[in-house]
């Protein structure tokens, strides 16, 4: 396969990621934002596959574009917020926000100009097989895997607790009325 085909795929996928993320962050209606975000994450999964991470691409589709985005959609449809109820920022705060972004862009540009000149050559295509990836993960990073499982358990308990606390506060607020 011609190597320039990979480059063309990369630029198409990159444009798709950037455009859909840009649409997602500017939508007024949250359902639209979440759906554009799903497109962005699916394009990211394609990019992972192109960059030689097939197992990670599958995880991206299952976990990010599947589970997390469905959770978002579920919450948006559950609380059904008003679409136009967003307060606009004052000029000073907007300037502060874009000032922080400008500092970030300046730092990124400085790092880009300090980069080694050999970083400009194209990368060799390579792929990690799912077997090699899984073996390496559980061979070298078994402790981190256990910590992540503990983190997910804590997140589960925290989410349950927050859900119960919200309901309790609401019933307490209603009681004196």
């Amino acid at each position: 396969m011609d190597m320039t085909v990979y480059a063309v795929f990369f630029y198409i996928i990159a444009a798709l990621i950037i455009v859909s993320a840009g649409m997602a962050i500017t939508r007024k209606h949250m359902v639209h934002a979440v759906l554009y975000l799903v497109v962005s994450f699916l394009a990211t999964a394609l990019l992972f596959y192109l960059l030689g991470a097939p197992l990670l691409a599958v995880f991206q589709v299952i976990i990010y574009a599947g589970a997390i985005m469905v959770l978002f959609l579920f919450i948006v449809m559950m609380i059904r917020p008003a679409p136009a109820g967003e307060r606009s920022l004052t000029a000073g705060r907007l300037a502060a926000a874009f000032g922080v972004c400008g500092i970030y862009v300046a730092a990124a540009l400085v790092l880009a100009f300090m980069a080694a000149p050999e970083a400009g050559r194209p990368m060799a295509a390579a792929a990690a097989s799912p077997f090699a990836f899984g073996f390496y993960l559980f061979d070298r990073h078994w402790l981190a895997v256990e910590m992540v499982s503990l983190l997910l358990l804590v997140a589960l308990i925290g989410a349950l607790h927050l859900g119960r606390a919200g309901r309790r506060n609401q019933s307490e607020r209603k009681e004196p009325l």
Partner: peptide, 15 residues
């Protein structure tokens, strides 16, 4: 980490 963050964050938003 993103999965854990989103689950707790959305629970807080609902709360």
């Amino acid at each position: 980490v993103a999965a854990a963050e989103v689950s707790v964050g959305l629970a807080m938003v609902v709360c």
